[in-house]
């Protein structure tokens, strides 16, 4: 007997099929002969992904995530330049310290992505969660770091439909 498939699963399936399909096209260089195999592989992979990573209650808004990309790119470049400058500077200008950053992101994937993003931005590195907060290691702890992290958290939370402030 067929069970009713929730709408969120169908939407996730369509989104994941589109993304995996794009990845297949890129990997095969758009080869026409590979399209049939791609169709089978992509549909199977999308179905499998629903089992391995079931859609959460708060879906990622792909268009909002994509809108964050250019800014992220610029700042991840700054992150690389910043750390390279510190590493090569004769006086090694680092003042490592920790920040505990409360986050409204409750889903594992959203938090993990925020942590990964944080780790690529200038001067910050996520070391997992501790209760409600992320433990963030800062290469050069100063007053502006927390404000920057909070702004980043707010933007990513919006992209993950978690814009209602911290959960009660």
């Amino acid at each position: 007997m067929l069970q009713a498939v929730p709408t969120s699963s169908i939407i996730s399936f369509i989104k994941r099929t589109a993304l995996l399909g794009l990845a297949w096209l890129v990997m095969t260089g758009g080869a026409a002969g590979a399209l049939v195999y791609g169709l089978v592989a992509v549909l199977a992979a999308a179905a499998l992904s629903l089992v391995l990573l079931p859609p959460g209650p708060r879906p990622a808004v792909l268009i909002r995530l994509a809108a964050l990309a250019p800014d992220f790119l610029v700042r991840s470049i700054l992150g690389g330049v910043d750390v390279a400058w510190r590493a090569l500077h004769p006086h090694l200008p680092v003042r490592p310290g920790w920040i505990n950053l409360p986050t409204r992101m409750t889903d594992g994937p959203a938090r993990a992505l925020f942590g990964a993003e944080t780790s690529l931005l200038p001067g910050t590195l996520s070391a997992g969660c501790d209760g409600d907060g992320l433990k963030i290691h800062c290469l050069d702890l100063d007053a502006r770091t927390r404000a920057r992290l909070e702004a980043e958290e707010a933007r990513l939370a919006r992209a993950f439909s978690q814009h209602d402030g911290p959960e009660p």
Binding site: V83, A87, L120, H137, L139
Partner: peptide
């Protein structure tokens, strides 16, 4: 530069900064 940071930075977490950020830019 990432490798220099890995050698020169004072603790494990600071070294991770150098590895992730500098190497990604290098690959880019």
């Amino acid at each position: 530069a990432g490798t220099v940071g890995l050698i020169r930075f004072p603790d494990t977490h600071s070294r991770l900064h150098a590895l992730t950020k500098a190497d990604n830019l290098g690959l880019g």
